[in-house]
Simulated scan of single mutants.
Amino acid sequence: MAYQWNLSQEQYEVKLAEQGGGCGICGRTPSEHRAKRAFAIDHDHRCCRTNSSCGKCLRGILCGDCNGGLGFFQDDPLLLLKALTYLLRWRRLHREDPNPGPH
């Protein structure tokens, strides 16, 4: 971890604690996460485009789902906002069942 992300284990633990012990987005802890594997170190790909980091562009620690989600949306806040708008619009139109799923 130290070589790839310029982050020591101690710094990782401090960062995770600053985030409340869980993913920087969803808040799930490693033990709550379905994969129960190590979380990802998230960094700004505009700075370091590879699977390593200079250490200055580390944004936080994320679970695999949230890290993958950011990647699928190309770290683009506007695209994420459009996705949020899309989901909220659907929920607003289907108020009778705000949490649809298998019944």
Rank of each mutant, 00 (worst) to 15 (best):
R34L: 05
F39W: 09
A38K: 03
L58Q: 12
C47I: 08
H33L: 00
L79G: 10
A35F: 10
F39E: 02
F39N: 01
E32Q: 13
L81M: 06
F72S: 10
R92G: 11
T85N: 04
G101Y: 15
E32M: 00
V14P: 01
L78T: 11
G71K: 03
A2I: 15
P102E: 09
G55E: 09
H43T: 07
T29C: 03
C54Y: 05
L87E: 03
A38F: 01
L93N: 11
L70D: 02
L93F: 06
I61T: 04
D65T: 00
C57G: 02
N99Y: 13
A40T: 04
G20L: 02
K82I: 01
Y12T: 08
A35H: 12
P77D: 06
C57V: 04
E96F: 15
A35W: 12
D42A: 11
Y3P: 06
F39Y: 14
I41L: 08
A38Y: 00
L87T: 11
H103G: 12
K36G: 06
A40D: 07
D75A: 12
L58D: 07
Q4A: 13
Q74V: 05
R34Q: 08
Q4M: 10
E32P: 02
I25T: 08
S31W: 05
G101D: 13
R28V: 01
L16R: 10
A17R: 09
P102Q: 12
G24A: 09
F72V: 11
A83N: 10
Q4H: 06
L81D: 09
I25L: 05
R34A: 07
A38M: 00
T85I: 06
F73Q: 07
C48R: 06
L78P: 00
E32L: 01
R49T: 08
E32R: 00
H103C: 06
D76N: 15
Y12F: 14
G69T: 10
G60S: 12
G27T: 02
C63S: 01
S53Y: 03
D97G: 12
P30I: 04
K82S: 07
I41T: 11
R89F: 13
L80E: 03
A40P: 01
D76I: 08
N6F: 07
F39I: 04
Q74K: 13
L62R: 10
